[in-house]
Amino acid sequence: MKLITATFLILFLITGCSSPKEEKPFILSYEFNKIDPKHEAELQKWLHDAKEDQEIKIHNIDLDGYKYSYVKGYKDVEVSYIHERQEGKLKQRFIKGTENDEVFVQIKYNTSICCTGSIYETDDSEPSNN
Rank of each mutant, 00 (worst) to 15 (best):
M1W: 07
K2G: 07
L3Y: 13
L3R: 14
I4G: 03
I4N: 09
T5C: 11
T7F: 13
F8N: 12
I10T: 11
F12W: 14
I14Q: 01
I14M: 05
S18V: 08
S19C: 02
P20R: 08
P20K: 05
P20N: 05
K21A: 08
K21I: 10
E22W: 13
E22K: 15
E23C: 02
K24M: 11
I27V: 07
I27R: 14
L28E: 00
L28H: 12
L28P: 05
L28T: 04
S29K: 15
Y30A: 00
E31T: 14
N33G: 09
I35R: 04
H39Q: 09
E40N: 09
E42F: 15
E42W: 07
L43K: 05
Q44A: 13
K45M: 14
W46T: 07
W46P: 06
H48L: 10
D49G: 00
A50Q: 07
D53Y: 01
I56Q: 10
I58E: 08
D62M: 14
D64A: 14
G65E: 01
Y68E: 03
Y68V: 03
Y70F: 08
V71D: 02
K72F: 02
K72Q: 05
D76A: 14
D76K: 10
V77A: 10
E78R: 03
V79I: 09
Y81A: 06
I82D: 12
H83L: 07
E84L: 05
E84H: 07
G88K: 10
K91P: 01
K91H: 12
Q92G: 13
Q92N: 13
R93W: 08
F94P: 06
G97N: 10
E99K: 05
E99L: 07
N100L: 13
V103P: 00
V103W: 02
Y109F: 01
N110Q: 04
T111C: 03
S112K: 14
I113G: 00
C114Y: 08
C114M: 13
T116I: 11
T116G: 08
T116A: 09
I119V: 15
E121A: 11
D124K: 01
D124V: 07
S125I: 11
E126P: 10
E126L: 15
S128E: 12
N129L: 13
N129E: 15
N130S: 15
